[in-house]
């Protein structure tokens, strides 16, 4: 249903052209969830905003985005308004700021209903009521008449989801929907998104920096680094046989229950590269424990290797003889290498 091919987004800034998304391709079918994972500033939020066409005016995008066979990736975003709300919609990161502070919550839901579906006020109110109860808000009648500041963060995110679902979109972007929420509420919101997605048979792109969030929920996972997709695989495959050192490093940086207390977490040393002047060769090479001379000179292509559906871009993949050899070489030369256990 969604076919993204070689999409690039760049921002004009005083420092130069920031290539926030640099050649990303994937496909997504109805009912599927794609998890997009990466650390801050790797272009995952920009990717979903690019597909939605919700970019600021100093951004330009190129590449092909096909939604149900229709090309929507052109430089103009005028026609995108026909898609917003009814075809695709978005749940934003911070429910504290994504609701209008001076408009009643009910009004914010019914507004897009009445605008897109041209229904009567009563019908819109009725639908809003159903939506609120379907996203698990108790006493929806009372809540409809409240303002955003009268609700908790989790409640607001539920309202945001209700608004996003109001016009029955075929595709939902969830841009780090739980980052601003309490951990105890995170799971509830994610479960809600998953349930609604299954019930409405929507396609969903779940953007997060937390591999744990997508682990049980996404069908496929795309790992992004410095604006590029560096590894993509069905969730199970990715976790069982990850090949890219960055994916491995991401997973290692999550605390585990069976670790002894006070165990140091394996952080990834350094920072993501400057997207104005990305490094030559593999972009992760400067931080990679496996990196060899070749990595600094030649960028590895993103391609399918041994398992079908599992593509990655690495010269010395994790869990292969080449990778093991490279790691051993690095550890031998600089003593205890970064990230190597």
């Amino acid at each position: 249903m969604l076919e993204v091919k070689d999409v690039r987004t760049s921002f004009k800034t005083d420092r130069g052209l920031v290539k926030a998304v640099d050649g990303v391709s994937f496909t997504l079918e109805r009912g599927e969830t794609l998890g997009v994972v990466g650390e801050s500033g790797c272009g995952k939020s920009v990717l979903s905003k690019t597909i939605m066409g919700l970019l600021p005016s100093n951004a330009s995008r190129s590449g092909s985005i096909k939604f149900e066979g229709q090309e929507i990736g052109g430089p103009s975003i005028k026609h995108m308004r026909d898609f917003w709300g009814t075809q695709m919609s978005m749940v934003f990161q911070d429910p504290m700021t994504a609701l209008n502070p001076v408009m009643k919550v009910g009004k914010q839901i019914t507004e897009s209903l009445r605008h897109h579906l041209d229904v009567s006020r009563e019908f819109a109110n009725e639908t809003a009521l159903q939506l609120l109860s379907s996203v698990g808000i108790p006493e929806p009648e009372r809540r409809l008449k409240q303002y955003a500041f009268e609700m908790s963060g989790g409640m607001r995110q539920r309202v945001m989801i209700a608004i996003a679902l109001a016009c029955g979109p075929k595709m939902l972007f969830a841009d780090e929907p739980t980052t601003a929420l309490d951990v105890t509420v995170q799971a509830q919101i994610l479960d809600l998104l998953e349930a609604q997605q299954a019930e409405r048979f929507m396609a969903m792109i779940l953007v997060t920096h937390d591999l744990g969030v997508v682990a049980g929920r996404a069908d496929n996972i795309m790992v992004m680094y410095a604006g590029q997709s560096i590894e993509m695989a069905p969730t199970r495959t990715l976790f069982s046989q990850m090949r890219h050192p960055y994916t491995e490093a991401l997973l290692k940086s999550i605390p585990k229950l069976n670790q002894a207390s006070h165990t140091r977490l394996d952080a990834i040393g350094g920072r993501p590269p400057d997207l104005v002047n990305p490094p030559v060769g593999c972009r992760f090479a400067p931080r990679c424990p496996y990196a060899q001379a070749k990595c600094h000179q030649e960028a590895p292509p993103l391609m399918v290797h041994d398992t079908p559906g599992h593509e990655y871009a690495c010269w010395f993949p994790v869990g292969t003889p080449q990778g093991a050899e490279a790691l051993a070489k690095n550890q031998g030369s600089i003593g205890t290498a970064v990230g190597g256990q």
Partner: peptide, 20 residues
């Protein structure tokens, strides 16, 4: 962000200006 949220719901610029 709520302005972008309204935009992502397909609200027209004039409407966003007046209502949001």
């Amino acid at each position: 962000e709520f302005v972008m949220a309204a935009k992502s719901q397909g609200a027209k610029p004039f409407r966003i200006m007046l209502r949001e």
